[in-house]
């Protein structure tokens, strides 16, 4: 946390493409450094009766790993992304319907959760679903010496003392999601700023 900009405090080059898949109602690819996530959205569509809600659209999030079957980690990330999307999605406008968001990990080289969040937002946007605001995710890693690396690579994440992921919405820069791994102080948590803004 010095006074001069550290080399760690930069986002890796990123690229996005929307509407690249023909079948889903909305789709987006989000590539950040070597991490790449593909998202597809179906909805609002017919809903299974067990999931039907008279108040809002039922949002399903599926996270598909590249190798093997989804495990506990994928399930927990699915839940995190779902909560963040539910906060931004105006689901009340489409009661008794379902919105399905499928996230496919194309390559994982660190900051996967924030990439998933960004891809999810872009795909929801592409599907034309009503949103309260845009949102984006940022991951940062705290090295053992206290240096902050924004948008860490897989190696930085591995060596880090703590990894923090936040999601912010775009209108008032409020926090949508925060998850941390490892030990860190409250002051360090405040260190992360919303920098993406509206990337599209």
């Amino acid at each position: 946390m010095g006074s001069e900009p550290e080399p760690g405090c930069a986002l890796r080059p990123f690229a996005v493409e929307q509407g690249l898949l023909s079948r889903p109602d909305g789709s987006a690819a989000f590539v950040q450094g070597d991490t790449s996530v593909l998202a597809g959205v179906y909805g609002p569509a017919e809903v299974r009766s067990s999931r039907e809600s008279p108040e809002r659209a039922a949002l399903d999030v599926l996270l598909r790993p590249k190798v093997g079957l989804p495990g506990v980690l994928e399930r927990s990330r699915e839940q995190m992304v779902r909560r963040a999307c539910e906060a931004a999605l105006l689901g009340e406008l489409h009661p008794r319907s379902s919105v399905t968001l499928v996230l496919q990990v194309v390559s994982d080289a660190g900051s996967l959760l924030s990439c998933c969040l960004n891809a999810a937002c872009l795909a929801l946007l592409d599907a034309g679903l009503p949103l309260r605001s845009l949102f984006c995710g940022v991951t940062c890693a705290l090295a053992p010496d206290g240096a902050v690396a924004l948008d860490p690579s897989a190696r930085q994440e591995k060596e880090a003392r703590a990894v923090l992921t936040f999601a912010f919405e775009s209108t008032e820069k409020r926090l949508l999601l925060s998850t941390t791994r490892g030990a860190c102080s409250a002051k360090e948590v405040e260190y992360v700023r919303d920098v993406h803004g509206t990337s599209v």
Binding site: E6, A10, P13, E17, V31, S107, R193
Partner: peptide, 23 residues
């Protein structure tokens, strides 16, 4: 990598170089 396969000049695509953050 896949970032290279995303077309540069397309209305639905967007690319950004390394974005330094003022800390």
């Amino acid at each position: 990598g896949f970032a290279e396969s995303i077309p540069n000049q397309k209305i639905t695509a967007f690319k950004m170089e390394r974005a330094p953050v003022d800390a």
